[in-house]
Design a protein around this nucleic acid. Structure first.
Lengths: 213, 213
DNA sequence: CGGCATCCTCTTTGATACTG
DNA sequence: CAGTATCAAAGAGGATGCCG
């Protein structure tokens, strides 16, 4: 990207990560850690392969990512964030919060990937920090993810779990709407969300509903 | 900007403000408040006038800015941020912090505007919250700005003041380097910064030097 | 299959000139 | 002052080909 040529920290930051797709590549690597080229491509629906390759080169020479030749059984290149790259997290967090308002009217045709639950999940609070650990499986995309709540903290990981306390199955927008406090669990169920298992586990992480004053 | 088509809050945010120049226009309006078209153009060196006009139209229809026909004596259009637009401040703040690292090696040819001191100044802490109010004038660009320290808070405004406690005159990089704790006041003076008035007023706001451990 | 490079078309940007 | 109009150059998007 052509430099703005401004002696301003914000402009300098945009010189480095202001290009189209760049921050979304950082998002992928922040959420998933080391990624193969094809993992990145799969997590960035719509990116042209030459652009991904070019951005990765740019990010590497800017010192934001690092290439690692993984030994067998992986036996391929893994892309990682460097310290500098990982320090973009507050930027993405700020974008995440600001962008929530645009999720409500998002078109049905938008793509979704299960690991994108990571930012919403991380912003959840545990309503009962002294309660027992619970795990909730989310099935809203091709692959499931597990929300784990323990010691007052919430985290998310890809994959499944043997016996989750609850399973949510339905459209991402319903689950995210609940997480954002825009709809209650009852409303989500009425709109088609399937909740099985212990509904109490779900209440553990749901925020106070946003009441339009 | 073409939508990423991803049901992800970060991607949605970038759909709205991911275009080149857009966040810098928001920066200008955040720092300066209501601006005329020519003020914006002056604060965004390098922007083409058709791009500025197009971005302003886009930002207006996205609900981030608002046009106001100011009555005489101004008698012209003023651009303001809406609430939604102003809520981008945490995003710019995060970019500001992350981008500081690139200021050290910035080319000498970079443009500078006095009001860009706003973000650095706002991140300063008052080392003596119970001390008397002090004002420090910064002369590093065409027009001076005043840093005001009172009640434990620091703020900046454009313009001059009758009798500032201290006056800093020199390259922006020296002043910003001091503010960021990268160099001490003594080092800045050795490198060409001119400090007149009460040096103690300056110590009021300078952070602990960053010692490379 | 993973990790690109090439080619082509279409859109966006930047620079400059001009206008009510 | 606050933009529009014009046009060359750069970048994005999509398809496909290549190579270990």
């Amino acid at each position: 990207m052509r430099s703005y040529g401004e002696f301003c920290s914000i402009a300098k930051a945009l010189d480095v990560v202001g290009d189209r797709w760049t921050l979304l590549i950082v998002r992928e690597l922040l959420i998933r850690g080391g990624c193969r080229y094809t993992d990145l491509k799969e997590g960035l629906p719509g990116i042209a392969t030459n652009l991904l390759s070019e951005r990765l080169r740019d990010l590497e020479s800017a010192g934001l990512i690092r290439r690692e030749e993984a030994p067998p059984p992986v036996a391929t290149t893994l892309f990682h964030l460097t310290e500098t790259g990982a320090e973009l997290e507050p930027v993405l967090e700020a974008f995440f919060r600001w962008g929530i308002r645009y999720m409500v009217d998002a078109p049905e045709t938008d793509e979704f990937r299960a690991h994108w639950f990571a930012f919403p999940v991380r912003s959840l609070r545990d309503n009962d920090p002294d309660g027992p650990p619970v795990s909730i499986e989310l099935r809203a995309a091709s692959s499931p993810v597990v929300v784990e709540v323990a010691d007052g903290k919430t985290s998310m990981r890809l994959g499944s779990v043997a016996e989750p306390d609850a399973i949510l199955c339905g459209q991402p927008r319903l689950i995210l709407g609940m997480f954002a406090g825009l709809i209650t669990a009852d409303e989500a169920v009425a709109l088609g969300l399937d909740v099985s298992g212990d509904a109490g586990a779900l209440q553990r992480i749901l925020p106070e509903p946003v009441t339009s004053a």
